[in-house]
Design a protein around this nucleic acid. Structure first.
Lengths: 243, 243
DNA sequence: TACATGCTATTGTATATACAACATCAAGAC
DNA sequence: GTCTTGATGTTGTATATACAATAGCATGTA
């Protein structure tokens, strides 16, 4: 499988960070020459990488490493700020906490740190047209993310910062319905405890787990929606059963 | 784009139901002859359909229409009964309501029916190891689904029945956190109103909207989870931005 | 400067061919 | 009946080639 050889070579360049977003990928002819294969074989490698969304190809221009910023709309829940702006609404954020804390035992294990090691912690409330729609309670692995505490998260969300600083490779999510804690209630400006949609998101880079975020949305002000056609459904199914 | 011509021809056969699950698809050579193209062009059509999960290809055997039964794990939320059995737990269902009712105006519009037309309505509680984990409140378009009221839904879930009777082509979902109504609370054997995760699922066939289901889960007994790697994430992203 | 033209590199589509790997079935050997 | 063998059809991989469509750049022109 020569084409798979080429795919993996390109994949390594991207995954290692040697080729960042928008970096040009060798052209079909260059790869064909370099790997001593025909252009059609090199083409297949790039084509499959494109199908998988790792590179973007433009006729006449070339092949480039795909930007990873934008996220799948439904599961990773795109950056809340982008989502709000997409609806042409105003977004602003208020930083409630930004601190260094002792890691809880469970989290220390997930991060691969010693018991009692320090981790970074931020709590940020996101507003849509002046109404609180999400409180983002996030813990960060300081071994993998530099200068987290010095960022101004009213300008750029933690998620955006993480995407820039580290190449994320995996994510897991859990969605559940909960009653907000009194602190969450306060952070969301809720008069009374209403049901909240809570999403736990964990993200990994190649070196290990980068961050855990707990995103809490008031049920009355947030809804998670999606739509898929038959063939798209089948495609998602395939990516999931493949593992 | 000759290859796209072939893709669409095959797609129509599948979508129309003329080729059911596991039905053999014409071979590359047959298609090449039929459409007056080279084998490589016919091959591309089948290959892309395979990438999209519509057909399954086996070297030496041939190409076949893919089984659609299994659903994407995260969004369509696989059949609750399957999910429970997958965890090696006991599942049973209790039918709370199974009746013909007047369609609400909104639903009649969605179904493409006259105001005040009759629709079918079922309410079923699903139990995992004896604990209620979901109440399924479903409305059915009687124009597209036969004999719904005569089914025994303790043996086969409505979702399973619908999948057998009609070829579903699209689905949309909304997820939110709510307080249960008093009826839902009763159907779920809840002592007090706890936050519930509520999923609204609408499904379409080619002829129109088939069904609307509202699935309500007690927050304390249910969690929606998922995991995806980098390249899978990118693939999902692509299918969603494509529209 | 501003615009138009054309050249070149790159990706997209289509074809023809060759061989490899595998599944299925039928005929024959035991 | 059971197993082996081989023929045939199918998909998978790889190559070589041709032309189309587009992007980007450089060059020439007004």
């Amino acid at each position: 499988m020569k084409y798979d050889h080429i795919k993996q070579a390109v994949y390594r360049k991207i995954e290692s960070g040697e080729w960042p977003e928008h970096h040009p990928v060798s052209s079909e002819n260059q790869l064909a020459k370099e790997f001593q294969v025909s252009r059609m074989t090199a083409r297949r490698a790039l084509q499959e990488l494109s199908d998988e969304g790792l590179v973007v190809r433009t006729r006449g221009a070339g092949t480039f490493v795909a930007p990873l910023k934008s996220q799948s709309a439904l599961l990773t829940i795109r950056n809340i700020a982008d989502e709000i702006r997409l609806r042409k609404h105003r977004h602003h954020a208020v930083v409630r906490l930004l601190e260094e804390v002792d890691a809880e035992p469970g989290l220390a294990t997930l991060f691969g740190l010693q018991q009692g090691a320090k981790v970074w912690h931020s709590v940020i409330t996101h507003f849509e047209n002046g109404h609180a729609v999400q409180v983002e309670d996030r813990h960060i692995n300081p071994a993998l993310v530099p200068h987290y505490l010095e960022q101004d998260f009213t300008l750029r969300t933690p998620h955006e910062y993480l995407c820039e600083v580290t190449p994320l490779t995996e994510a897991s999510h859990q969605i559940e319905a909960v009653s907000p804690t009194s602190m969450q209630q306060q952070w969301l400006d809720l008069d009374q405890a209403e049901p909240c949609l809570q999403i736990q998101r964990r993200t990994w880079a190649r070196e290990g787990m980068v961050s855990q975020a707990v995103l809490t949305h008031p049920g009355s002000r947030f809804r998670l929606g999606g739509h898929m056609t038959f063939s798209q459904k089948a495609k998602v199914l395939k990516t999931q059963t493949k593992k």
